[in-house]
Write a protein that binds this DNA or RNA. Structure first.
Length: 288
DNA sequence: TGCCAGGCATCTA
DNA sequence: TAGATGCATGGC
C-alpha cells in the first residue's frame, strides 16, 4: 500500500492508522489461526472479517497498521472499533508475554514469535473455517475457505468475498456444495449453518455459558469434536483460557515440556499454546 | 505415485 | 467404553 492514500486496486479510501502494540502482522495472519487473508504482490494483505473487507499493511513488524477499505468512504468510528477489536489491539500483550516468560521453555517460544497476536475472529466465520480444517493440509484449508467465500459469500467493496451467512448456507443441500470439493466436510458445514440459522447455536448463547457447557453445545454440531470446538472458543469467542491441542502443539509440548504445559497465567493458556505452535511449526521436522 | 493432513463419526469387540 | 477404521481431497 502506498503511504498517504491507497491506490491498490479495489481499495481506494484514506488509510486508517492503528498502533499495533508490537504486533507482527504477517506472522499473525499466517500462523494458522485464520485463513481469510492473502498476501498481495505489493506486500499488503487483503482479507475479510465480519462482512468487511480490508487491505492491511505494515512497514515493519511492530510498526502501526495501515488499513484501507474498499468503498471509497472514510472509516467510521464503528469500523475503527471493529478492527481494533479484531486485531486485539486493546490487550496488554507486553504484560501477558512477561508472565509467559517466567517459564524458560515458554519464553523461548515467545521469543521465536513475539509479534504473534491472537485475533478475535467472528464466530460463524471461525466455526466454518475450523470445520473445514479437520484432517486437512493448511494450503488446502486456504483453498477450501476461498472457494466457500467466493461461491456463497457476499461480494464486498474492494472485490473480495466475505464468509456466507448461516441463513444462506442453511438453505442449501450437500450437492450444492460439491464445487467446494470439501468431501465429507460439506454435510458438516450445512449442519452448522442450520443450527446457527435456527438459533439453536448462537454467539450470544455461547457467551453466556461456562467453557465446558459452551464446548458441549458446539459439539452437538455434526463434525465438531473437541479440537474444533476449542479452536472456535479460542479464536471465535475470545475464550483465551481454552487449550486447543493440535498435532504440532502436542509434539512441541512433548519436546519442550515433557508432555505437559508449564503453568501459565489463568485466562491465557490458549494464547500460550499459539506461541508454542509457532515454535513447533518452524522448529520440528514434518512427520516427526 | 503414494503418503498423509491442525478430526470426527461410526463400527466393533 | 475404548480402539480401529473409513472418510474425500489434494499438497508434497
Amino acid at each position: 500500500m502506498q503511504k498517504g492514500g491507497s491506490k491498490t486496486a479495489g481499495f481506494t479510501n484514506r488509510p486508517l492508522r492503528l498502533e499495533s502494540g508490537g504486533m507482527d502482522l504477517a506472522s499473525t495472519l499466517f500462523c494458522g489461526q485464520t485463513f481469510a487473508w492473502e498476501r498481495r504482490p505489493d506486500g499488503a494483505f487483503a482479507g475479510v472479517a465480519g462482512g468487511r473487507a480490508a487491505l492491511c499493511s505494515q512497514e515493519a513488524p511492530g510498526a502501526p497498521l495501515l488499513l484501507a477499505g474498499g468503498d471509497g468512504a472514510p472509516f467510521s468510528q464503528e469500523d475503527r472499533a471493529f478492527w481494533r477489536r479484531y486485531f486485539a489491539l486493546d490487550v496488554d500483550w507486553e504484560t501477558l508475554l512477561l508472565r509467559f516468560c517466567a517459564d524458560e521453555n515458554l519464553a523461548a517460544c515467545v521469543a521465536h514469535a513475539r509479534g504473534v497476536r491472537v485475533l478475535r475472529q467472528p464466530f460463524f466465520d471461525t466455526l466454518l473455517t475450523f470445520i473445514l480444517s479437520q484432517n486437512n493440509h493448511i494450503p488446502r484449508i486456504h483453498g477450501l475457505v476461498q472457494r466457500l467465500r467466493e461461491g456463497f459469500g457476499p461480494l464486498l467493496p474492494g472485490g473480495l468475498y466475505g464468509f456466507p451467512a448461516a441463513e444462506r448456507l442453511a438453505a442449501l443441500e450437500v450437492e450444492d456444495l460439491a464445487c467446494l470439493r470439501a468431501g465429507f466436510r460439506a454435510k458438516y458445514l450445512l449442519d452448522a449453518a442450520r443450527r446457527v440459522a435456527s438459533g439453536e447455536v448462537s454467539e450470544q448463547g455461547l457467551a453466556a455459558l461456562p467453557d465446558d457447557e459452551a464446548r458441549a453445545v458446539l459439539m452437538r454440531i455434526h463434525g465438531v469434536g473437541p479440537k474444533v470446538a476449542d479452536c472456535v472458543l479460542l479464536y471465535g469467542l475470545g475464550r483465551q483460557d481454552v487449550v486447543p491441542m493440535d498435532v504440532w502443539m502436542k509434539r512441541a509440548v512433548e519436546a519442550l515440556f515433557g508432555g505437559k504445559m508449564p503453568p501459565v497465567a489463568a485466562g491465557s493458556a490458549g494464547i500460550a499454546q499459539q506461541y508454542v505452535f509457532c515454535w513447533a511449526r518452524d522448529n520440528l521436522p514434518r512427520g516427526s
